[in-house]
Amino acid sequence: MENCLALKVTDKDNVATIFANGVTDGTNVDVRDKKGNSETVTVIGDVPYGHKIAVRDIKKGELIIKYGEEIGAATKDILKGEYVHVHNLEALRGRGDL
């Protein structure tokens, strides 16, 4: 069976977005870039459609990069394949107090 799809936009990105339903802990997904190159990554955690996984290990405090730009910082160590969202990513700006 073909693997589920995850997309990343630039080579700098350390996260990819899942475009498949039913991705659960241990599912293999193909992470594709804009040219169509792909790499298979095993997902850690249950990840809903449109949510993100790490495409490499990310250390606590490191920037999370999507679209080639920072979308936040890791609040804990994140493993390759792990679900990335508000539980382990903190916005750097726009909390209403900046």
Binding site: V9, Y49, Y67, V84, A91, L92, R93, G94
Partner: peptide, 15 residues
């Protein structure tokens, strides 16, 4: 829907 921060939301449009 999967957006984790205001930066991510904004970048999705800016891209």
């Amino acid at each position: 829907g999967g957006l984790s921060s205001i930066e991510e939301k904004s970048l999705g449009a800016i891209v």
